[in-house]
Amino acid sequence: MITLITFAPSFGQIAASPFCVKAIWLLNMSGEDWQREDSTDPRNMPKQKLPAIRVDGQVIADSDNIRAFLESRGADFDGGLSEMEKGSRAFIRMAEEHIYFHNVLARWGDDDVWPVIRDTYFAQIPKPLRGFITGKLRKNLLTGMKTQGLGRLSAQERLERLEPDLQAITTRLWQGPFLFGDMPTAADASVAPMLAGLRATPGNGLAKMRIAGDRMLCRYIDHCQNMLDMPQVYDVTSTAVSEPLCA
């Protein structure tokens, strides 16, 4: 049995990190038997981050490595896609190397949102120490975001930078309920959690409100969550999709 080590649920999401959501969805899509182990401290993991899986005495960290492991056991996350459609890897990189950092700044960089994030993510730290410890973590993270580049932009500038990505996703969704047809693929397991994370972020940040106000993106997020959050919901023989949860 595979054990997924993941962050706990938060803000209505099945896990606090979109990469953990991705791993959950890939496991459900793979048909493997697995169990969940929630953790608040990834420092003992091989990459010092989550998600990771424990199987046959070894620990495999990083969602891409988890995907590769599942594919080595026969999972086909892009079944039925043409060679051109397998360019969906570009959507995965867009989501994980760009949209993800908008998530980070929406949660860690907004002074109004940060207290909620701090007290949710770090509830295990006693209150007298929580502000001091997490303040240093936040400062280091935001310094890294300035090095990355997005941290140098205003919220409005970041929204303008995000908009072409959202338009590219919307263009694909005119073709079907998922990015590449009637059934979810690996691209959906990366893109939808990033959008869902932004939509679920506390407060009324610009990126959150942009996604929450977009009927097509909301429907897409809800389709993915309805089908992939729970293993018994996903049926590779069916193309039926339940109704969206938001207008």
Score class of each variant (00 low, 15 high):
residue 2 I to H: 11
residue 3 T to D: 13
residue 3 T to R: 13
residue 4 L to M: 08
residue 6 T to G: 07
residue 7 F to Y: 14
residue 7 F to M: 12
residue 12 G to D: 04
residue 13 Q to N: 12
residue 18 P to Q: 09
residue 19 F to T: 05
residue 19 F to I: 02
residue 20 C to S: 13
residue 25 W to D: 05
residue 26 L to V: 07
residue 27 L to P: 05
residue 28 N to S: 10
residue 30 S to Q: 09
residue 32 E to S: 14
residue 33 D to C: 06
residue 34 W to T: 04
residue 35 Q to S: 14
residue 35 Q to L: 11
residue 36 R to V: 14
residue 37 E to N: 13
residue 38 D to I: 09
residue 38 D to C: 12
residue 38 D to P: 02
residue 39 S to P: 02
residue 41 D to Y: 10
residue 42 P to Y: 01
residue 43 R to G: 04
residue 44 N to C: 02
residue 45 M to I: 01
residue 47 K to F: 00
residue 48 Q to W: 00
residue 48 Q to I: 00
residue 48 Q to S: 11
residue 48 Q to K: 13
residue 53 I to S: 08
residue 56 D to M: 08
residue 60 I to H: 06
residue 62 D to I: 00
residue 62 D to Q: 01
residue 64 D to F: 11
residue 66 I to D: 05
residue 67 R to V: 12
residue 68 A to M: 13
residue 68 A to V: 09
residue 71 E to W: 06
residue 73 R to S: 06
residue 75 A to G: 10
residue 77 F to R: 06
residue 78 D to V: 02
residue 79 G to I: 03
residue 80 G to P: 03
residue 82 S to V: 05
residue 84 M to I: 12
residue 84 M to R: 14
residue 85 E to P: 00
residue 94 M to K: 10
residue 94 M to Q: 13
residue 95 A to R: 00
residue 99 I to C: 07
residue 102 H to E: 13
residue 105 L to I: 11
residue 106 A to P: 01
residue 108 W to M: 09
residue 109 G to P: 04
residue 111 D to A: 14
residue 112 D to E: 14
residue 115 P to A: 10
residue 117 I to D: 02
residue 118 R to E: 15
residue 120 T to P: 05
residue 120 T to S: 14
residue 121 Y to L: 15
residue 122 F to C: 10
residue 123 A to F: 13
residue 125 I to E: 10
residue 126 P to L: 11
residue 130 R to P: 08
residue 131 G to H: 11
residue 132 F to M: 15
residue 134 T to C: 15
residue 134 T to Y: 12
residue 135 G to L: 12
residue 143 T to C: 07
residue 143 T to D: 15
residue 144 G to N: 09
residue 149 G to L: 09
residue 149 G to H: 09
residue 152 R to H: 06
residue 153 L to W: 08
residue 155 A to K: 07
residue 160 E to L: 12
residue 162 L to A: 08
residue 163 E to T: 14
residue 164 P to C: 11
residue 164 P to D: 08
residue 166 L to V: 05
residue 168 A to W: 03
residue 172 R to Q: 14
residue 179 L to E: 03
residue 180 F to C: 07
residue 180 F to I: 02
residue 181 G to F: 01
residue 181 G to L: 03
residue 181 G to A: 07
residue 181 G to C: 03
residue 183 M to C: 11
residue 187 A to F: 05
residue 193 P to F: 08
residue 194 M to L: 03
residue 195 L to T: 01
residue 195 L to E: 02
residue 199 R to C: 06
residue 200 A to F: 01
residue 200 A to G: 02
residue 203 G to R: 05
residue 206 L to C: 03
residue 210 R to H: 04
residue 210 R to G: 06
residue 211 I to Q: 01
residue 215 R to H: 08
residue 216 M to P: 00
residue 218 C to T: 03
residue 220 Y to F: 07
residue 221 I to M: 12
residue 228 L to W: 03
residue 231 P to L: 06
residue 233 V to P: 00
residue 233 V to C: 15
residue 234 Y to R: 04
residue 236 V to I: 12
residue 237 T to P: 01
residue 237 T to G: 09
residue 241 V to Y: 02
residue 241 V to D: 01
residue 242 S to V: 06
residue 243 E to Y: 01
residue 244 P to Y: 00
